[in-house]
Simulated scan of single mutants.
Amino acid sequence: MTVDPASRSVRGLTVLITGAASGMGRATAELFAAEGANVAATDLAEPAVRELADGLQAKGLTAEAWGLDVADAAAIVTVTDAVAARFGGIDVLINNAGISAFAPIDSQGYEAVWDRALAVLLTAHQRLVRAALPHLRRSASPRIINIASTEALGATARDSAYAAAKAGVTGLTRALAVELGREGITVNCICPGPILTGMTAAIPDADRATFARRRTALGRYGRPEEVAHMTLSLALPAASYITGAVIPVDGGLMARNA
């Protein structure tokens, strides 16, 4: 496929998205499909991600679904190769799959939380990059976009496992940007702040409102679609000189001192 390097369209590009069944991943899949991309939606929740793909197909958009546990190294290779075979390659990898991983450092179950956090939130990212790399190298507009968190930039009590994994994602992003840059493969990272997703749904409305008013410049939680649009921007062929960036999408959370 020939791609205009100045293009501001992802039409015809193949995008592999992990954690696509809900939240930011779902919004990202819907946006890329609406923009004409071939969407490979993956998630541990296979029925939900298949429902997403079926809904997109019903609208005349191009999407396929795969069940994927990103903690399963063998499954990553199998699914990545299946995506490339189905669509003739991979142009954009979006490492979005995530879990909540909060535990006090001295709690009995901390080691298990730590191991799971690193497996899903960090190790899976490098495994997906390694699996997708042969396909990305054949793309005319290769992009890797990792989803981290503002918890990588400033932590919360009892989230050391989560924060460490997310900080690892920012380090991995910068290192791979340097390593892969001469091949024209860009690697960037988005750090969402407080976003209205399944992970934050359990927080009482009043507590969310108080936090947003006190901590963010915009005074509100973000919507998954607002993160998805930043992801789309980094995936554009025209975004070819942006790499190694760590970009907060946080309503001004990290900019605010008090």
Rank of each mutant, 00 (worst) to 15 (best):
S7I: 03
V10T: 12
G12L: 05
V15P: 02
L16I: 01
I17D: 02
G19T: 10
G19Y: 11
G19N: 12
A20E: 05
G23N: 10
G23Q: 10
A27M: 12
T28G: 13
A29T: 04
A37C: 09
A40H: 09
A41R: 11
T42V: 06
L44G: 05
A45P: 01
P47Q: 11
R50Q: 14
L52N: 06
A53K: 03
G55T: 07
L56Y: 10
A58Y: 02
A58H: 12
L61V: 01
A63Y: 12
W66T: 00
G67P: 08
L68P: 02
D69M: 09
A73D: 15
A75N: 04
A75K: 07
I76M: 09
I76C: 12
V79Y: 10
T80S: 06
A84C: 04
G88W: 03
G88S: 08
I90E: 02
D91G: 02
L93H: 05
I94E: 05
N96V: 00
A97C: 08
I99A: 02
I99E: 01
A101Q: 04
F102S: 15
Y110G: 02
D115E: 15
L118T: 12
P134S: 10
P134E: 11
L136E: 11
S139Q: 07
P142Y: 04
R143E: 12
T150I: 14
E151L: 15
A155T: 13
T156V: 11
S160K: 00
A165H: 00
K166I: 00
A167N: 01
V169A: 09
V169N: 04
G171D: 14
R174D: 11
L176W: 06
L180P: 10
T186N: 12
T186S: 14
T186F: 08
V187I: 05
C189Q: 05
C191I: 03
P192D: 01
T200I: 07
A202R: 15
I203V: 15
A209T: 12
R214K: 15
G219S: 08
R220W: 03
Y221G: 03
Y221P: 02
G222F: 01
A228Q: 07
A228W: 07
M230C: 13
L232D: 04
L232K: 10
A239C: 08
A245E: 09
I247D: 06
D250P: 05
D250R: 07
G251H: 01
L253K: 10
A255Y: 02
R256D: 00
A258E: 04
